[in-house]
Design a protein around this nucleic acid. Structure first.
Lengths: 246, 246
DNA sequence: GCTCATGTTTCAAATATTGAAACTCCATTT
DNA sequence: AAATGGAGTTTCAATATTTGAAACATGAGC
């Protein structure tokens, strides 16, 4: 139902992940939508303020999304509360810090603090990031109730993004077991060549929150000792956050 | 074009202004939309995560809006920067504090800090708040370039909300002149019976920002001396904000 | 065990969306 | 200076979606 609304949302996700403005042709190609159709969606979205059209004919997310976003009840307080911890971690490690949760079976990025020297993540399929090759995804799967984890893993379409992507269900289950044991997860260029991520699960019981906190950095800056530092700092930050909620 | 996308956005605005969850019947009545149609829009919006359906069959804005909202480029920093000043003012006066700007000819509420004893504003038409009977609207109109102000005033449909609403264009122009002289604007139950608002213009030149800062409170709590206090505190906060940007 | 209010599904009629093609505009090349 | 190519925009008939009246389902209150 209402396929146009769904497509419009796909456009929003694409623009949201893009980082910078995109032009009509690029957007229509990324989404496999006809140029004309894409054009009209964009014009409509601009008209209602969900998208902004710059002078150079590029499109990006608009202020009305900001307005609506700030009206989402309850949980905004939640992120407001976690934000300072993320900022501090970001300044400390000087890499990008992410917070995500599972929402309706998919990864939802709640908050991101970009380090000044962060590199742009690639504009993905516009909609959802994969569970099987992101550190955040693995961490979240490691803390869900066992039957829910199984259900979600059964639904994963193990799409391959790089040669390192885990595409085998059995191997992936082993990986999740390992994450459970270690208390952290990694993504070593499994989603994008050159990008390494480390995550720890964040489970705020009192708010029924199942999420994860991650650091993402160019692989070239993450040697074994840096990786170890990141893991320790993530765990420390996680504990501080948990403390602030108890 | 894409009327379904537009209607979906109307639903979002209604839910955003509602404060609390709304049920299907109420939403369809407020928007003058068929119950069936409304139902399907809501289901679609829930499916994409822009709306959340609670157990008691009420709908409210969903987390995906939060996610997208936090990805709106540039200006989020902007509001992050103003937020502390608004929080301080809110704690000081113990009433709700609002920040809005003009966007594509309409009022866009960027940020709201609700005092603990705030009363719920009524869920308006779901989309846009009127320029002619809100303190914020008047303040913004008082600082725009003269020809733009004229153009906007010419487009206002002077809808009446209460007996005090100014519905005469000439009188309204006089009111704007008064606001220019005084440096603040008021809404004395012109939009909603029982609700008084006071606003000051906020013009951040360096960011090409034309907006306003307001306090809204139940009329019964705003006597002449309180009103005077509010005006002074709004002006002081405005100056602090301007200072932080220079 | 009714009754009413609310939410949900069905289906044909009414309407909006789609994409190929054509057109415009602007920058670059010949 | 004309020709080429690339990007954005408009047109229009074919197609697919949306719409709302009516019927159905569910559950709370009487």
């Amino acid at each position: 139902m209402s396929s146009s609304v769904k497509k419009a949302v796909t456009v929003l996700h694409l623009l949201g992940n893009a980082g910078e403005g995109m032009n009509l042709t690029t957007i229509s190609k990324e989404l496999n939508m006809d140029k004309t159709t894409t054009f009209r969606y964009l014009e409509t979205l601009v008209e209602v303020g969900l998208v902004e059209k710059k002078d150079n004919n590029t499109y990006c997310l608009g202020m009305v999304l900001f307005e609506l976003g700030s009206k989402v009840p309850v949980k905004q307080l939640f992120i407001t509360k976690i934000d300072p911890f993320m900022k501090r971690l970001c300044e400390d490690v000087n890499e990008t810090v992410n917070l995500a949760q599972l929402y309706q079976g998919r990864l939802l990025y709640l908050h991101k603090i970009e380090s000044k020297r962060s590199l742009q993540m690639r504009a993905t399929l516009g909609n959802q990031l994969p569970l099987n090759c992101t550190a955040i995804g693995k961490s979240i799967l490691s803390i869900l109730p066992a039957d829910e984890t199984r259900k979600i893993i059964d639904n994963i379409k193990f799409q391959s993004f790089t040669p390192s992507t885990i595409t085998n269900k059995t191997k992936f289950k082993e990986e999740i077991t390992r994450v459970k044991t270690n208390g952290y997860s990694t993504d070593l260029e499994e989603f994008e060549i050159g990008l390494t991520c480390i995550a720890v699960p964040l489970n705020i019981m009192s708010h029924d929150f199942y999420g994860a906190l991650s650091i993402s950095a160019p692989t070239m800056r993450v040697n074994a000792s840096v990786m170890d530092q990141f893991i320790q700092k993530l765990k420390a930050t996680r504990d501080e956050i948990l403390n602030s909620f108890s």
